[in-house]
Computed example of a mutant assay.
Amino acid sequence: MTLNNIKGANADAFALHPGYRRMFAQGQLTLGIFLPLRFYDGDMGVLTGQARVVSEIDELGFAAVWVRDVPLYDPTFGDAGQVFDPFTYLAYLTAHTRTIALATGSAIFALRHPIDLAKAAATLDCLSGGRLVLGIASGDRPVEFPAYGLDHNERGERFVQSVDYFRQLLADSSLPIDMPLGQLDRAYLLPRPVTGRIPLLVTGSSRQSMPWLG
């Protein structure tokens, strides 16, 4: 397995990133809002009007709007989470906002392939003018993994592989990628992020050690 050893970055690397700068304004307490405002319980009507509220809080100076990534509804889990696809929904909210950061809480890197994640993330980052911040995780709903043909117990390892692949795709590099999740040579990802990088914030432990998270 060939790795380019592209590591995470500290805050200084995102000093010019509009979304990160909005969320982590120096010396300020910032506030965001987490969607959905009301949980789905069989009636899609509870989701009506969310875009209007997000537009209003954008005007009021809120820092971020967060959406969850829940591919499948498990009635035994306790809640449906975010019903809409996170990237599609954030793209919709992009058109209704101007400055608020658009954040995932969290994109499930252990389920989605890194090429699809990187394509969606870079597209949304460009459409929003660099406002995307990715909260990422390994997933907490066991029923989803066999539906994807994956082993729930291996989500920690797959999470790390997906993060590595994602970072290499977004790096300004023509080096080949040779990993368990795929091999890539003589091709690269478009579009490129507005500021060259997209912030990744690991939520929870995602089955990783503290040194790795650090």
Rank of each mutant, 00 (worst) to 15 (best):
Q26E: 15
R98M: 06
L200W: 13
A13E: 10
L181P: 12
A80R: 00
A107G: 10
P75H: 00
R167Y: 09
G156D: 14
I115Y: 15
R21V: 15
D116G: 12
L170D: 08
L150S: 07
N5V: 06
G214I: 03
Q183E: 12
L31D: 14
F159R: 02
L111T: 12
E157I: 04
Q26W: 03
E59V: 03
L37D: 13
F39T: 04
M44W: 06
F145R: 02
A25H: 11
T88F: 04
L93I: 03
G149K: 03
A171I: 00
H17R: 01
T203Q: 11
G204L: 05
L16C: 06
L90M: 01
D151N: 06
D12A: 13
F34D: 13
Y89Q: 09
G182A: 07
I136G: 11
K119I: 10
L72K: 00
T97I: 02
D116P: 03
D41T: 08
S128P: 11
P199C: 10
F77M: 06
D172C: 06
G135R: 01
A147C: 09
Q208C: 15
A137M: 04
V194Y: 05
Y188M: 14
A103M: 13
Y20V: 00
T99A: 13
F166K: 01
A15Q: 15
S173V: 10
G129I: 03
D151R: 01
H113R: 10
Q26G: 05
G105I: 02
L189T: 06
R186Q: 12
S205D: 15
L169W: 13
G149Q: 05
V143T: 13
G135C: 02
G61W: 08
S209F: 11
F159Y: 15
G27F: 04
P142N: 11
A51N: 03
H152Q: 11
A122W: 00
F87V: 00
